[in-house]
Design a binder for these strands. Structure first.
Length: 419
RNA sequence: GGAGAGAUGGCUGAGCGGUUGAAGGCACUGGUUUCGAAAACCAGCGUUGGGGAAACCCAACCGGGAGUUCGAAUCUCCCUCUCUCCGCCA
């Protein structure tokens, strides 16, 4: 959520953001609603002040004076109640609109409509080429009994899967390797809930817009699609110490996604599934744009370090305005090379939000001048199993059908090859 | 699942219908003292919204929501969460 003062003072900038992010929102309507809200608010406050003053006189008044005061108060109260009702409605409508106002994209973000317009900013590694007929990760999983998709569908339904044997080991190896990397970098490891209350999803900006992609329980909780949701809500309503910032977490959780808008896409394998596991980087920092930018580059670099250690060809794209989430200021996607598709596929997503999330979640810190400020937030994937293992399987296959295990992961296996 | 107790400022903890935004303590900030620090003493110290050039003024906030009342931290109802005991259980 943006500050209404900022919105009022920078209507052109916000309108531009609405246009660039393809958000449907009538900003002029919001401004005039805010005008009305302020007007009624001030009316209510004046009425309350009057009531308070008269009411204070009751303490020292005798019986007849009391009657007189009461006669004065009755119509006042009636009027106040009417205005309060009006204010309540206005405030509720105002809030509904406020949560739809998008954050403003950074100047360096290219304008565009969809992921087609994202721009590559750097690429690393040679795109893997084979002098034999290469298999996709689905065929490789089947060939070596690394996953069971048929029984996955039988037990769990469409997009269900079981990971088995070295397939299962590969997941654990990646988690362990990634976790160790981030612990060395000073991140706090943490396992967070996926079953969350809806306030957490409003706070992180996944509601109200993203409801159709979320699973909901019969008790009203939701299953989060990322550890970011629970992790960001961890400090909701709290005031942090500036000396403790930035706070860096490496958070693990199962992730659930309905993939409601993705029918027919990636229908086989583990590229697009309803349930997977993810280690996520989450950072809370002081409210400083330069620091957010520096940390954004840092969380992106961490992923690149890991991709390079795994020797996986990848590139980094800067997402265009149309491919940004409501709260995101700037986002990089890190995409791994998928030989079977002869293209890069998103494996990580690195973004920063300024105080968009923390304003909703009310996470603040006391600055040196004594004032309270909303912290800045950032997050990036650290390791998403299943997409990362799929990429490893494809890139590491050999002519004889075996799959080599990346050097840095061999410490977690008893062999160097699958098959 | 059953029974009970509770939720107050950055923390702790009083208040249980009327100048209470809220005693006391801790923490914090400034000062006195000191070569410096600690201790002691003095003073200050909530957040949010609105108005104002400013001094300052007004309103809201004692887990959340509704109600009673001229007036609610204080009374009533609902919800959430925490704790204790019993039951069940990975």
């Amino acid at each position: 959520m943006l500050d209404i003062k900022f919105i009022r003072d920078n209507q052109d900038i916000v309108k531009d953001a609405i246009r660039k992010k393809f958000v449907k929102l009538d900003l002029d309507g919001l401004i005039s609603l805010d005008d009305k809200r302020r007007e009624v608010l001030s009316l209510v406050e004046n009425l309350r002040a009057e009531q308070k003053t008269v009411s204070d006189g009751m303490v020292s008044a005798d019986a007849s004076a009391r009657e007189e005061l009461l006669a004065k108060l009755r119509p006042l109260k009636e009027n106040l109640q009417k205005k309060e009702e009006e204010l309540k409605k206005l405030t509720s409508d105002w809030r509904d609109m406020m949560v739809q106002v998008p954050n403003v994209p950074d100047m360096t973000v290219p304008e565009g409509v969809s992921d087609e317009d994202n721009q590559e900013i750097r690429a690393w590694g040679e795109k893997t080429q084979f002098d034999f007929e290469a298999k996709d990760h689905v065929a490789l999983c089947e060939a070596h009994d690394l996953a069971d998709f048929e029984r996955g569908a039988k037990v769990s339904g469409f997009r269900g899967y079981f990971m088995k044997n070295e397939g299962a080991q590969l997941f654990f190896a990646l988690w362990q390797y990634t976790l160790n990397y981030f612990i060395k970098e000073g991140y706090t490891p943490i396992i967070v809930p996926s079953l969350v209350k809806k306030e957490t999803l409003y706070g992180t900006g996944y509601l109200p817009q993203g409801e159709e992609d979320l699973y909901q329980t019969q008790d009203g909780e939701f299953l989060a699609g990322t550890a970011e949701v629970a992790m960001m809500s961890y400090y909701a309503g709290e005031i942090l110490e500036k000396k403790d910032l930035p706070k860096k977490f490496i958070a693990f959780s199962p992730c659930f996604r309905r993939e409601a808008g993705a029918h027919g896409k990636d229908i086989k394998g583990i590229i697009r599934v309803h349930e997977f596991f993810k280690l996520e980087q989450i950072i809370l920092s002081e409210a400083n744009h330069e620091m957010s930018v520096a940390l954004h580059e840092e969380i992106t670099k961490h992923v690149e370090n890991i991709m390079q250690a795994l020797k996986l060809p990848y590139h980094v794209v800067v997402n265009c305005t149309g491919d940004l989430g409501l709260g995101q200021v700037k986002k990089y996607d890190i995409e791994a090379w998928m030989p079977s598709q002869q293209k890069y596929r998103e494996t990580h997503s690195s973004s920063y939000f300024h105080d968009f999330q923390t304003r909703r979640l009310n996470i603040r810190y006391r600055d040196d001048d004594g004032s309270l400020k909303y912290v800045h937030s950032l997050n990036n994937t650290a390791c998403a199993t299943s997409r990362l293992p799929a990429s490893i399987l494809e890139n590491y296959q050999e002519a004889d059908g075996r799959i080599r295990i990346p050097e840095v992961l061999r410490q977690y296996f008893s062999t160097d090859y699958i098959g």
